[in-house]
Write a protein that binds this DNA or RNA. Structure first.
Lengths: 152, 152
DNA sequence: GTATATGCAAAGGGTTTGCACGGTT
DNA sequence: AACCGTGCAAACCCTTTGCATATAC
């Protein structure tokens, strides 16, 4: 069930309340993280007729009214999450493709410093760092290779 | 002219020396930052016959042997740069689309802290932060709107 | 009733791949 | 001479768009 006042937020933005919009919002909240495609699948579990383009249009709209955000986790599709989640930054492992989250406060001091020196105001909800997760940076982790395709 | 030992680095990786590879490397170094497409244009200024797929294949290869890196600056195409550039992180303005760079040392302490608490080893060369640049976060900057398309 | 949302299908970027030819070793 | 790299064209994934129909208001 979407956060309490979602309908109001849509109306304030001049948008209508539709079943699809409710479904997209629910899917995002249920998934935690999800690409447009994954969100479609989630939505279709209960409503098979919904179209991918509707997902895209509504994610864009929901982001505009402030109910979801997205960040780019690397090559592929972006990831959407609902705004009432704890604000977090993404850690994307380049070896095993794992994505983990850490509370954004760990970056706060750094970003404040950055703002003072450069004037750049970072959108903390968009941060994704590439690197190697704990298991994959361990001296010789067999896990690393297994989790992904062994080639490459 | 590519960094001194590039030919060696290719050979060590089991790759051959070709004119195209030299051209791609030169283009990346000349451009500083560039998407595959921009790199193609740069290459074609001197060699019109080179194909986009060759650019992709060679960027991937050059990255594998450690001569270039790339980072994702948002929605579109990734950006490549040569590794002997100063290591820097990208600041991408979501309003005016400007991309600026700051020396990566500003993030070092933060990333070290992150490593200690989570075990995640960040690839510092891949960092791109989304946000608002100095001019666009100024109270009411007219610049911001002008630099981009006014719609949206 | 009117304007907005939706579904569908086609088009659009960016990237990858299969294949025959040409170049490097 | 053998194999790798290239150009070309087709295929692919993700996203956007045009249009007629359906729906919220």
């Amino acid at each position: 069930m979407p956060s309490a006042h979602w309908e109001q937020q849509l109306r304030l933005g001049g948008y209508r309340i539709t079943p699809q919009r409710r479904l997209v919002l629910e899917a995002v909240e249920r998934l935690g993280h999800g690409s447009p495609d994954e969100i479609l699948s989630e939505v279709q579990r209960t409503s098979a007729g919904v179209n991918l383009s509707t997902i895209y249009r509504n994610l864009e709209m929901l982001e505009e009214v402030g109910l979801v955000t997205h960040s780019h986790l690397g090559h592929g599709a972006p990831t959407y999450h609902s705004v009432d989640d704890h604000v977090h930054i993404h850690l994307v492992c380049g070896i095993c493709d794992d994505v983990s989250s850490v509370d954004a406060v760990v970056a706060q001091e750094f970003l404040e410093q950055l703002r003072l020196t450069t004037g750049f105001v970072t959108d903390i909800t968009h941060i994704a760092l590439q690197g190697r997760c704990a298991s994959c940076s361990a001296p010789d982790s067999a896990v690393a290779v297994d989790k992904k395709h062994a080639d490459h």
